[in-house]
Amino acid sequence: MIRFLLLCWVMLLPAALPAAVETFEFSSDELRERYQVLVEKLRCPKCQNQNLAGSDSPISADLRREVFLLLEEGQSDQQIIDFLVARYGTFILYDPPKEGTTRWVWLIPGVFLLLGIGLVVMVLRSASRRPVPEAVEGDDYE
C-alpha cells in the first residue's frame, strides 16, 4: 500500500515542477529571491489561472524578463507591481486590493453569515417561547 502511494506521488511530481526555464543572471542572491517571490504571486494575463512562474506562454516569458530587468534597475517590489498593474490591471495580482467589486466578494459571505445567525437565533427563541400544551394538542389519538 505504501509503495503504491509512493508510486502515485512520484508520478505526480513532474506536474509540480515550475514550467519556467529561462535562467537570468542576477547580480545578487537577494534579487533572485525577490524575483522568485514576485513571479509566484503575479498572474499570467493570458492563461487566467497560472502564475508567471508556472506559465509557458510567450507573454509570461516577456513579463518575467521585464520583472528581471526592473529588479536589476533597482526598482522596489511595489514599484514593479505598480508598473504591471498600470498596464494589465489588478487582474495580474493573485491578491487584488479589496476595493470595488473585490470588496463585495469579501463582504457578502460575512453578511450571509450574520443573516444566518440571526435566523437561527430567531427560530430558537420562538421555539422556546412556544407553550408546551400546543404540541400536545396536536397529537390527538382517536
Binding site: P45, K46, I59, D62, L63, E66, R87, Y88
Partner: peptide, 12 residues
Amino acid sequence: SGRLGLDLGVYG
C-alpha cells in the same frame, strides 16, 4: 521585442 505591446497591456 513586444516592449511596446507590454506598455499597452497586450497579451495576445
